[in-house]
Design a protein around this nucleic acid. Structure first.
Length: 273
DNA sequence: AGCGTCACCCGGACGC
DNA sequence: TGCGTCCGGGTGACGC
């Protein structure tokens, strides 16, 4: 499931080029959508009309959104669980689940493949409509431990759901949250407000280290979602129930926390600490 | 107000 | 082969 590193890599490929072609500077000429129920998007007719002639100026990531800044407005993609976004020449056969294709003037097209159809496309005048509610970027140079401390202070809430709350911090999903908490040696059920300065420092380092490790391995390839990365081979706890903790050998445990499967080492991440 | 819980969306994977 | 169940990100409804 694309989280911050996977989304970042997809955005970079579109911005900097893939198969010798990059998105910026090109213009959409036609759209093929098999997507009758888009949330936050005009009707398919309206979309086709409004996207035609729009030129891409820049591709970037914010949280888990891929943002295409256009000469007028912006096109945003949220890949949710199983989405992928890439460029293909128009003559390339249409693969299963490629529900949306945006043709460009140069004979290439932007394809949105989504097996489970959870993903979303938004064509908006102002991207802030969607991005304004997001929390800070954990990899930003000016995101310091004291900023994390401020986010967690006073919140009587478990760490794991807090870290996955996109309005608190943008970009962490189930995988990187579990990985970060293990690196920080913190139990996912610890209350945010209970962390001391040293634990905050550890968590800050751990979040950034887990995300950077994901980026270094080109992201994690899981399920039918994003492919191409190798980070899944380096998971410490995620989907490793019963396997030995890489730090101490204790079998990894799996619990369910706010409806999400949660993996941790009971020895390295004690609940009462 | 802030938080937890639940249902929903969907189709692949898996167990029986 | 076929049916039921689980999974999961984000949102919105609801309740405390």
């Amino acid at each position: 499931m694309p989280e911050l590193p996977e989304v970042e890599i997809i955005a970079r490929r579109l911005q900097a080029g893939q198969n010798g072609i990059a998105l910026p500077g090109h213009t959409f000429v036609r759209a093929s959508l098999q997507w009758p129920r888009q949330v936050g998007m005009p009707s398919a007719e309206g979309f086709r009309r409004r996207i035609r002639g729009r030129a891409v100026q820049r591709v970037r990531r914010r949280g888990k959104y891929i943002v295409l800044d256009l000469d007028r407005g912006a096109l945003l993609f949220h890949l949710r669980m199983s989405g992928d976004l890439y460029l293909q020449p128009r003559e390339a056969p249409v693969e299963p689940h490629e529900h949306t294709r945006l043709m460009m003037e140069n004979g290439w097209e932007l394809r949105f493949r989504d097996v489970r159809k959870f993903g979303r496309i938004y064509l908006v005048d102002d991207p802030q409509i969607l991005l304004a509610r997001l929390g800070p970027e954990p990899l930003d140079a000016d995101f310091r431990p004291r900023d994390l401390a401020r986010l967690l202070a006073k919140r009587r809430r478990a760490l794991k759901p807090a870290l996955m709350d996109q309005t608190l911090l943008a970009g962490l999903g189930n995988i990187y949250t579990d990985e970060a908490l293990h690196r920080a040696r913190l139990h996912p059920r610890r209350l945010c407000s209970s962390l001391n300065d040293e634990e905050i420092q550890r968590l800050w380092r751990a979040i950034r280290a887990a995300l950077r490790a994901g980026l270094r391995h080109n992201g994690a390839s899981i399920d039918a979602a994003y492919r191409g990365g190798g980070f899944q081979k380096h998971f410490r706890v995620y989907r490793r129930t019963g396997l030995p903790c890489p730090s101490c050998g204790t079998p990894i445990e799996r619990i369910v926390l706010t409806q999400r499967s949660t993996h941790f080492c009971p020895a390295c991440q004690p609940e009462d600490a």
